[in-house]
Amino acid sequence: MSKLKSFLKGNVKQIENASLKLERFDEAIILRSLESREGDVISDQSFKNKPGKKGKQERVFDAIKYNRDICVASIVHPDLGDVELQESYGVRGADNLYSVMFSLGEANHILEKVTELSGLDEDINDHIDEVKN
């Protein structure tokens, strides 16, 4: 029973937010890791129905939408939902703001940091090799 205690919510180590400094901005952006359930919702919303063979609808995964949405969900600061910030870029909605606020290179840096924070950058095969040894 004592081994179970390390999995109780009060005993789990929290993942710290991370700051990412982008050259064009005076302040760093603050990112948080995503919980599995958040990733599940974003993943589910990243499927689109497209016409397939013989007119049947096929569910197709949109990786670009998925990557953008996990980045938007991970940004703590600045608040992409802030109306004043959205108005300054002439858009409405956090996802639209993200798309115009950050350059392609900046968006890639954000995605790299988010995947690192959320543990998506780890190769499962590395862990399998460790266990085998």
Results as ranks from 00 to 15, higher is better:
75 I>M: 00
128 I>E: 08
83 V>S: 13
56 K>H: 13
96 N>S: 14
126 D>F: 03
25 F>V: 03
124 I>K: 01
110 I>D: 08
74 S>K: 12
77 H>K: 15
3 K>G: 10
59 R>D: 10
112 E>I: 01
26 D>H: 12
95 D>M: 03
20 L>W: 01
34 L>P: 01
110 I>V: 09
69 D>Q: 12
71 C>Y: 06
105 G>L: 14
13 K>Y: 06
89 Y>F: 15
96 N>F: 07
126 D>G: 05
32 R>C: 06
106 E>H: 09
67 N>V: 02
17 N>Q: 15
82 D>R: 03
45 Q>S: 11
101 M>W: 00
123 D>G: 02
65 K>M: 09
2 S>I: 12
59 R>N: 11
115 T>S: 12
69 D>V: 05
68 R>W: 08
94 A>F: 05
36 S>K: 15
69 D>R: 05
13 K>F: 09
15 I>Y: 10
108 N>Y: 13
19 S>T: 15
131 V>I: 14
66 Y>S: 03
65 K>I: 02
92 R>E: 00
53 K>V: 06
110 I>A: 04
69 D>H: 06
26 D>M: 07
78 P>N: 14
11 N>W: 13
119 G>T: 04
82 D>V: 05
3 K>M: 11
78 P>H: 09
6 S>M: 14
126 D>A: 00
115 T>G: 05
108 N>A: 14
83 V>Y: 04
73 A>G: 06
22 L>Y: 07
110 I>P: 02
15 I>R: 14
112 E>T: 06
67 N>P: 03
8 L>M: 12
51 P>H: 00
119 G>L: 00
54 K>F: 12
36 S>D: 10
107 A>G: 10
25 F>Q: 04
103 S>C: 08
71 C>L: 11
12 V>N: 08
32 R>S: 02
133 N>T: 03
61 F>N: 11
120 L>Y: 00
20 L>V: 01
109 H>A: 06
36 S>N: 10
1 M>Q: 04
29 I>D: 00
72 V>A: 06
18 A>D: 09
126 D>W: 05
130 E>W: 04
129 D>F: 05
112 E>N: 07
50 K>L: 08
111 L>T: 09
8 L>T: 13
41 V>D: 12
27 E>D: 13
105 G>Y: 15
95 D>R: 02
65 K>N: 09
79 D>G: 01
92 R>T: 02
17 N>W: 01
119 G>D: 02
113 K>Q: 13
57 Q>V: 13
112 E>G: 06
133 N>M: 05
50 K>V: 03
78 P>E: 12
98 Y>Q: 15
13 K>W: 00
84 E>F: 12
82 D>Y: 04
85 L>G: 03
54 K>P: 01
52 G>M: 08
52 G>P: 03
88 S>Q: 15
107 A>W: 07
17 N>L: 09
28 A>V: 10
81 G>L: 06
96 N>E: 07
25 F>K: 04
32 R>V: 00
76 V>T: 15
61 F>L: 15
93 G>K: 10
127 H>P: 00
30 I>R: 02
40 D>V: 09
40 D>A: 10
18 A>H: 11
24 R>H: 09
19 S>M: 09
